[in-house]
């Protein structure tokens, strides 16, 4: 802030002189205001109205929010989203960290081959993946039931039955897809940690488990938090996988076992119904969840000792 309004006459001159710079950054601000800021603000307003998209809008105060919080299906979707999200985070966080640690430790060769293989799911379409897993989880002919039958476990009706096992299939897919992504990010972070730190720990007699928990994780905390926020947003936007797994059912299959919050939202409007005001209220509630969790994670990351290094 070296330029103060000391010569405000010169300010206009300076703006004109730098008009090219303003032109360069203009597309972002224009598009953001039109296509993001306006919808977000309008969405908040809309959430207090009853509106079918064509006829007149009716102001109904917080009725949408009251109805929403009283809707069993909403809570079902919330519960499913949370169960899927929380359980799936165990493999993608811990598994990702452990795999990254192993590949970083120089204990094994062929690091790049493993990295490549683990990362493959990230470049594939979720729809295609869901179609494949639908077959793998098939009741009568699926590979997974076949594998289990080798251990004498009778066939399990993953995708139908009472609907509760759809979540297992989604969790498996979610973890399968994201573990490689997290691993590659952690690995890049770990490569920024000096090898001396590990050597010093080894000399002090620390074993691998202690090194992971006492050195690697604390030093990687900002990066772990970053991936945590990313996958939390991913969790609340979870829609494609359960949607395809349940044969494009907007209600999440048997007993709404695969209903997620995003699916619930889109089914109110614009896909299933035309409850635009109500759907806006749902969108805002989901957003509040995301924002609150992101703030909590960020707080947690800033807590305790400042990490000795951030990023790269």
């Amino acid at each position: 802030m070296k330029k103060n309004s000391a010569y405000s006459k010169g300010l206009w001159h300076e703006i004109v002189q730098n008009r090219v710079a303003y032109a360069y950054i203009a597309p972002f601000f224009i598009l953001f205001i039109v296509f993001s800021l306006f919808p977000i603000v309008a969405g908040f307003g809309l959430s207090f109205f009853r509106w079918d998209g064509t006829s007149a809008m009716h102001f109904i105060g917080i009725e949408n929010y009251i109805n929403l919080l009283g809707d069993e299906l909403f809570w079902k979707g919330f519960q499913n989203t949370l169960i899927i999200g929380i359980i799936a985070h165990i493999p993608i966080l811990l598994g990702g960290l452990v795999l990254a640690y192993i590949l970083n430790s120089k204990l094994v060769k062929g690091e790049n081959i493993f990295k490549t293989i683990y990362f493959m799911p990230m470049v594939t379409s979720s729809v295609a993946i869901s179609i494949i897993f639908q077959q793998l989880f098939s009741y009568n002919y699926g590979l997974i039931n076949f594998f289990l039958s080798l251990f004498g476990i009778p066939n399990i009706n993953w995708l139908a039955g009472d609907g509760s096992l759809i979540k297992v299939a989604v969790i498996v897919m979610f973890s399968w897809k994201w573990i490689g992504w997290n691993m590659v990010i952690y690995l890049a972070g770990m490569q920024g940690i000096s090898q001396d730190v590990y050597e010093a720990a080894m000399i002090d007699g620390a074993n691998h488990v202690q090194t992971v928990f006492k050195i690697t994780i604390p030093l990687l905390k900002p990066i772990v938090v970053f991936t945590l926020i990313q996958s939390t947003i991913g969790m609340f936007n979870l829609f494609t996988e359960p949607f395809i797994l349940t044969n494009s059912s907007w209600t999440g299959g048997v007993n709404n076992g695969g209903l997620t919050l995003m699916m619930y939202l889109l089914n109110k409007a614009p896909q299933g119904g035309t409850l635009y005001g109500y759907a806006s209220a749902v969108a805002y509630v989901i957003t509040i969840f995301i924002v609150v969790l992101s703030i909590l994670f960020n707080k947690w990351s800033q807590e305790s000792d400042t990490p000795r290094r951030r990023g790269r």
Binding site: F32, G43, M262, Y276, S280, I286, I290
Partner: peptide, 16 residues
């Protein structure tokens, strides 16, 4: 702006 999730505006975005 990176902190704001797109979800919040999805319905008006679609109407637009």
């Amino acid at each position: 702006t990176m902190m704001i999730p797109f979800t919040a505006g999805i319905i008006p975005w679609f109407m637009m």
